[in-house]
Amino acid sequence: MTAATEPGADRVVEAPPALRLIGIRAAYERVEVLHDVELSVRAGQVFALLGPNGAGKSTTLRVVSGRMRPTAGRVLVAGNDVTGTSPEKLARQGVCSVPEGRGVFPNLTVAENLRMWTYRGGLRRSDVEEVTYARFPRLADRRRQLAGTLSGGEQQMLAMSRALSTKPTLLLLDEISMGLAPLIVAELYELVASIAAEGFAILVVEQFAHTALQVADRAAVMTQGRIDMEGTPAEIGPAVGDLYLGSIRAEGSTTE
């Protein structure tokens, strides 16, 4: 099924969005955690999905990457309905998902990790190594080291090397800054921006809202399993602080 046959799809001639979620609902056990989530990410766009913990951001990514089946709604990648497709199939089709805090195999060496990236169809080992080592010479020095012994920043570079070398149609990044020092986070986001510049679509879930907003083209705020607000970073930015640190207006405090 293609987007062209969708009643709600864009009728414009341009290519369908890299990712489109239509009416997604998802539940753990019997508790629904996503209620009717809709969003779309275009090629070359960085889309930041923000919100407090437990809002359903990571669950949204789980649904998109095929790790969780939605109870309702559809997932379209580049116009194709991929709802219910297995994560490995999606990965081979070009959905690259870097899960929260663990985008690398800690007990494999750097070189072995890179070899795992070649499961994305048509890639050779040498291609992956070339791209990665050219971008991150530090990893080349550590190619025989276990990934788990790398510093947090280096691990994240290794994880991002998958995005760089596999040229995904859609890149999903889940809290890549978690546990990293601000300086390294800034570095990582420069990298995200440069990957976006190559024309990939990127969906970023991030707790450090300001950092993510600096590189995002578009952003949405999620709370309680719903998308509350969507807009440009300039529109979203000012509202975020309240959402994260709570409003004490309810108590009639005078601080605000």
Binding site: P87, A91, V104, F105, R120
Partner: peptide
């Protein structure tokens, strides 16, 4: 063995 889910995400079944 290391990370089943990540393995699937790289495209290996």
């Amino acid at each position: 063995v290391d990370d089943r889910e990540l393995t699937a995400l790289t495209g290996a079944a």
